[in-house]
Design a protein around this nucleic acid. Structure first.
Lengths: 226, 226
DNA sequence: GCGTCAAGAAAGATGCATCAAGTATCTTGT
DNA sequence: ACAAGATACTTGATGCATCTTTCTTGACGC
């Protein structure tokens, strides 16, 4: 269960923002899905104001776009944009892995192994949602161990954009999807920054393969048949 | 003149957001300065709603913080946080420089040299504001040449956080501040990614020195004497 | 049958009233 | 004169009314 309580004094817009972030990261929205402020207000049981606030923040994160002035939609993701995000992730998560390898404590590494174990189980059980969440948890734990909050925030925004495109793509590769997580943990144990970085880079490249394939197949927006 | 028209269909909140971004990046706010929604609404000649929207976005960018539920302030910057931002910039601007070196056209390189020339003049003339703006323009032009819009957005947010701390620090080092820009341009001409990356890294390290010094002196928040 | 235009509905943008919580100020009693 | 409590003010959060623009839909004319 990823937590995105953005450390703000709790107000309604943060609650809505957090809920929408979770939904986005869990792939509960499809690219191109339309969001209506009044509908969401009814669902959340608030007025439209906190919803507007949350949607404005998501738009600022480029997770949702305004296709036209009155048409709010989950953002699409071109192949070019995905490749840019991947390149950025390689640099930033590489930095996080290197730093984590230098400072990780035994307890932190054990926590990481626990996530890995649970991820393994989720994949065995075919629990796609849990598998996705634990995979994300692994990636977010590295910058957390490294003590890099700014990097964590950037990563969160990138994932917000990838979220709607991961659903269905993730687990397409089965447990191979997390194979590269093990060398990361091994590198942390050896306090080997270079190896940790290389392992996480391999993971990003391999794990992103199914996403990229889907983008190439043009599934970014559902074809209309009628 | 940096442009932060975030490609949105123009509405009031975007206008306010853009104006506040510019003000932040130009160092026209000091860390700890308090922002009042109603005051800003009067200044911009709008109601409070678009101001709230813009401030919410800036808070989402972590450029401003809510010290208490009714106390909106320009965010401070700890030394630790600045060092993290610097490390991230090194990775990301390094990537931008490498990519730019591979794809830059003659016209783009000439535009970069034009910025450099004007920056030189601004420094000679002691025009601190223009010097700061042109230095920023140089840094933002590289990812633009490289065709990396996501990276540009991340960089913009980082600069939003640094802006209030640059003022006064910039130009403390005189024209040495842009010395490393020349090797960058030379590397682009030679299409030498590694050299371009190294030069921009040197620039980030050197250019950030005065900022870091100020942070270490504890100028993050003005001492109150009375 | 198809294209065009208009009326109505939909929906985000804006403005504003009210609320609650925090802050400053004023009063009052010692 | 000082301190403590009460009062008034400040200010962001929330809710809501209205406005304007856009999308839909359907009828009319070619």
């Amino acid at each position: 269960m990823p937590e995105f309580t953005t450390l703000e004094h709790e107000n309604l817009n943060s609650v809505v923002y957090g809920a929408l972030c979770d939904a986005l990261m869990q792939g509960r929205f499809q690219p191109g899905d339309r969001l209506k402020i009044r509908d969401l207000a009814e669902q959340f049981g608030t007025s439209v104001t906190p919803i507007r606030d949350a949607i404005l923040r998501l738009a600022n994160d480029e997770a949702i776009t305004f296709r036209s002035p009155r048409d709010i939609r989950i953002a699409g993701l071109s192949e070019r944009r995905y490749l840019e995000i991947r390149a950025i992730r390689i640099r930033l998560e590489g930095l996080a892995a290197e730093t984590a390898a230098q400072v990780a404590t035994g307890a932190e590494i054990q926590a990481l192994e626990q996530i890995l174990r649970e991820n393994e189980e989720a994949i065995e059980a075919g629990d796609r949602l849990k598998g996705t969440q634990l995979n994300q948890a692994f990636h977010f734990t590295l910058p957390k161990i490294a003590g890099l909050p700014v990097l964590t925030g950037i990563l969160r925004r990138l994932w917000l954009q990838m979220g709607p495109h991961i659903s269905g793509a993730y687990l397409a590769g089965g447990r191979a999807m997390i194979d590269h997580h093990y060398p990361v943990v091994e590198a942390l144990k050896r306090h080997d920054p270079a190896a940790a970085s290389m392992a996480i880079v391999d993971d990003i490249l391999l794990g992103g393969k199914p996403i990229l394939d889907r983008l190439e197949r043009g599934d970014e927006r559902p074809r209309r048949l009628a």
